[in-house]
Amino acid sequence: MAADHDKVFKALADPARRLLLDRLFAENGQALGALCAGLDMTRQAVTKHLAVLEEANLIAVVWKGREKLHYLNPVPIQEIADRWIAKFERGRLRLLADLKDKLEGESDG
């Protein structure tokens, strides 16, 4: 689990890879050629970035005939949000709940 999260954070640490994910978010299921269009990156560089994203499970691949289509897989980001970031959210919500109890307790008294 920790190692899987490391891969996700490392994959997301590169602006070019985040750009590729953004492009798939805008239009899911693109082939390499479409993903490269209008980018200031070589085809080889894009291929390498896609491999890192696939290894981190942020991209899922579907073969349609001879075409390799890339799909954004948001599940690992969701898992990090649920298990890691939510911890801090819970802390903040508990503080608010405590504050509410305290203030309401004061007004009752």
């Binding site: 689990m1 299921g29 899922a60 799909y71 897989n73």
Partner: peptide, 11 residues
């Protein structure tokens, strides 16, 4: 229209 979701579960 297609979406694809992948997760690894220890089970």
């Amino acid at each position: 229209t297609r979406s694809v979701f992948v997760t690894y579960i220890r089970t």
